[in-house]
Amino acid sequence: MSGLLPGFADPVADAQSAFRAVLEAVARPGRVQRLPRSPAPPAPLSPAAGAVLLALVDAETPLWLDAGVTAAEWAVFHAGCPLVAAPGDAAFVLATGAPPALAVLDPGTDEEPQRAATLILQVATLEEGHGWHLAGPGIEREHRLRVAGAPDGFVDAWAASRARFPLGVDVVLCAGDRIAALPRSVTIREG
């Protein structure tokens, strides 16, 4: 633990700022938000993924992550969250490489769809204005979002997941210090 990196510089204000960015991202799917007050987490975590993690995850939310021992130690130290071995048992799933299939994550139940997992997915870049066509609540007509480094077959897997609404998984895409969200209510058409 000697090389442990710090978390938020100002835990109260930085967590609020990160949460507001996530709230705005979830409320307006496909709009890219910046997180200027992110921490500098250990590789391979991006600043945005680190900020989203510290803002939302704590002792009440089991975490699954694929980012290696150093990143896991950092998350456990700063967030105090339990780690789980199976992604299906996690409230938050953080994927820096190929993520677990959407179908294996917890989709919630008919009476309690809020119990569904949140997938924090690290991608290469996020860009508004072209790429996928997004529609659904939070979108006036259509938002476009280009995601470089999205997992293979993601759009098809999303369509299958969308068919289960109100069950489903909510996704926060992270790239550098930028995020965009795909709440389960959104539909994606390849552009």
Partner: peptide, 11 residues
């Protein structure tokens, strides 16, 4: 905050 994000995801 976690509850709010889920609430927005399931309007």
């Amino acid at each position: 905050r976690r509850a709010l994000l889920k609430a927005v995801a399931v309007p």
